[in-house]
């Protein structure tokens, strides 16, 4: 029979996002809370001056957490429901399954994303060039975090595969580094520590593109290089190590 690839991707979006949102509407609220609560704190403490960077921080957090969440969702569906075994023994390819699941994570974040995009439209009023830069950075950020999620899912440790662990990673990489405010606010030596997180590079590019951070072009080039380089390396490791069939 002729198989419809769109159906095969959409199935993942349904199972991993839409059905859960539809049958348990409360989850809609929880996906909005964490990016918006940090946004509110930063905005109030800065008397509104950092609303622009905080919106961008919220976007980074959403894309980063979504990729990381993929890992624990995949483990949950594989270990607790044996869904992945059912899919392996079917005509669905690993790429379509994983692709659908990853897309689902974005769909799951749509409520928070929608609010942030509306806020961005009102307060940042980005030009087409800025929109292009921001979406590219966010997309790369998402790919990096999906790759981190995949790499972690190759560790068969219960701790690593737990929801608690992915929440910890989200906080560590999306709340602690300077993504909700410019890195120029962070004193030495902590600003050096911030560069351990890939989200810092993403934030620097975005904050400078929107005029909240004044850095030379050379640094922006380095930021891109690091972001793309780290992403490529993690992605390669993840693809190499991840297994569809068990051994």
């Amino acid at each position: 029979m002729k198989r419809n690839r769109l159906s095969q991707i959409f199935a993942g979006v349904l199972v991993n996002a839409i059905y859960e949102m539809k049958n348990y509407p409360i989850v809609l609220l929880s996906t909005v809370i964490s990016p918006l609560s940090l946004l509110a704190v930063i905005t109030f403490v800065s008397s509104g001056t950092l609303l622009g960077t905080a919106i961008q921080g919220g976007l980074i957090m959403i894309f980063f957490s979504s990729g990381i969440a993929l890992q624990s969702d995949l483990s949950h569906l594989k270990n607790d429901f044996k869904l992945q075994d059912m899919i392996v023994s079917s005509p669905t390819s690993s790429k379509l399954y994983m692709g659908g699941m990853a897309l689902a994570e974005i769909v799951y974040s749509i409520p928070g994303l929608a609010i942030l995009i509306i806020l961005a439209g009102i307060y940042l009023q980005p030009s087409p060039i800025q929109i292009l830069i921001l979406t590219t950075v966010l997309f790369v950020m998402f790919v990096v975090s999906v790759a981190i999620g995949f790499m972690l899912s190759t560790f068969s440790s219960d701790v690593v595969q737990s929801y608690a662990f992915s929440r910890l990673l989200s906080l560590l990489f999306a709340a602690l580094p300077p993504v909700y405010y410019p890195i120029s606010y962070v004193p030495a030596p902590f600003n050096y520590l911030a560069y351990l997180s890939p989200t810092t590079y993403a934030a620097e590019i975005m904050h400078s593109a929107t005029g909240y951070l004044d850095i030379p072009l050379s640094r922006i080039i380095v930021d891109w290089a690091v972001l793309l380089g780290v992403g490529a390396i993690i992605l390669l490791v993840a693809i190499k190590k991840s297994r569809w069939k068990d051994v």
């Binding site: 198989r3 419809n4 159906s7 199935a11 349904l14 059905y19 049958n23 569906l77 429901f81 079917s90």
Partner: peptide, 23 residues
């Protein structure tokens, strides 16, 4: 194997068929 908690029987069967590539 367990039927996924947050889904109904209809959604369970339907999504599996989509995965297999049905329209």
């Amino acid at each position: 194997a367990r039927a996924i908690r947050w889904m109904t029987p209809k959604q369970t069967v339907f999504s599996y068929l989509l995965w297999r590539g049905y329209s």
